[in-house]
Design a protein around this nucleic acid. Structure first.
Lengths: 222, 222
DNA sequence: ATCTTTCCCACCTAGGTGTGAACC
DNA sequence: ATGGTTCACACCTAGGTGGGAAAG
């Protein structure tokens, strides 16, 4: 809704802000957490489920931030940009392009923008611990607010925006990590992805074999 | 910690702020939600459990707010003031004074201050839905941050503070509701209180009789 | 003895998983 | 027939209840 307009309006100020040499976020640094885990999924092409009511992401997008002005107020936003112009298809154990992407929406942030629930908050708050986007939900239907709508079988890359909110809004950072690319699906296509999700997501523990669940007692399980 | 000093410093500005005639919160109104439920407990003297790791309140303190400046930034704080100078005792089915209160702390907010997790946020955020303090936890031990420490068998009344955070902090509201008075206990004293808690708190549903759980099907239960 | 606190417990609420059959 | 989506489900995580025995 209006957040989308806000973001594009504010984005044009990024360059201007830098030219003015605003000193408050001179040494800003944003680091992706759990990068090793993300890369495990990335290596075999990550997939994220989309459902009518919205599905959480796993792995969870988590960043540690430093270099903000502790006493200034910021909001953290997330959007999902198409990674290419393709629709994808999983055949014979690999993902191959299958026609042009469906373009649902011309603006920048086709699926909507997720506002981190801690927003707005002081720089000190965002820096005291990693910022976790575990509550963002991906959907393939038009839904109530707070969910991200994506096209199934299309590839996306999450983008993080840090906005300084004050008398004048100002985009402070606009970063993205290739490790977090994924293809939206309504059901997992690659069995190896399913296996990784089950292995690392605690909520999927029901599907772990008994032997995997008692790694320290190899003789007892089974 | 520093929040306590902030509050007392800011409080002295309340009168000054009013004299300046700051117009932003002219028609401020704060209403207690679920007041009927609170009064059911108040009538027989409410009790709240305190534990080492902290116990939630039931009923939950919930207020609806109007009259804030939608685009100004506010924080919502809660503290618990001694309602009298007594220590209380439950004998023969009623609460009677039993000696003078133990005074653990001379300042105003002896048990600490709870900051609503949505803080800080815009006036529009606080007004779009009732503000719920369901996550506040009461304890009788010195603990990590975010919990309120109370003396068992002492009577308290919660106080809500709304602070406008900006270049200059300013206390906007300071309200309290007698309906929300309670005596802190480590175990319920009055069986009628226990019965009310079980009847209305969904988390205590395990202790509801079968007949109470199927009110619409009187013939089926039992 | 009495009063108060602590601890473990069974039983809930609330909601996040992939499965597999059904559906389109 | 094929490929993609939906749904109910069992099984988890995570954590909020008062009970009751035990401890202080």
């Amino acid at each position: 809704r209006c957040m989308s307009r806000l973001l594009s309006a504010v984005e044009s100020e990024l360059q201007a802000g830098r030219e003015k040499g605003d000193p408050t976020e001179r040494g800003l640094q944003v680091t992706l957490e759990d990068a090793e885990l993300w890369r495990k999924f990335q290596q075999i092409t990550n997939e994220m489920i989309v459902t009518k009511n919205g599905r959480r992401m796993f792995p969870v997008l988590k960043v540690s931030v430093s270099g903000l002005d502790p006493s200034s107020m910021y909001s953290f936003l997330l959007d999902f940009m198409p990674a290419d112009g393709c629709r994808w298809k999983f055949v014979n154990g690999e993902w191959v392009p299958a026609g042009r992407a469906e373009v649902r929406n011309e603006g920048r942030s086709p699926g909507g923008i997720y506002i981190h629930p801690d927003s707005p908050n002081f720089g000190a708050h965002w820096m005291k611990a990693a910022v976790t986007f575990n509550r963002v939900k991906l959907t393939n239907k038009v839904n109530g607010e707070g969910q991200i709508m994506l096209n199934s079988l299309h590839k996306y890359q999450p983008h993080l925006h840090i906005v300084c909110v004050g008398s004048q809004h100002r985009l402070v950072s606009n970063v993205s990590f290739v490790e977090t690319q994924f293809i939206a699906v309504t059901a997992y296509q690659n069995d190896e992805i399913t296996a990784l999700k089950i292995k690392y997501n605690p909520f999927a523990k029901a599907f772990l074999d008994a032997k995997d669940r008692n790694p320290g007692r190899p003789g007892l399980a089974e």
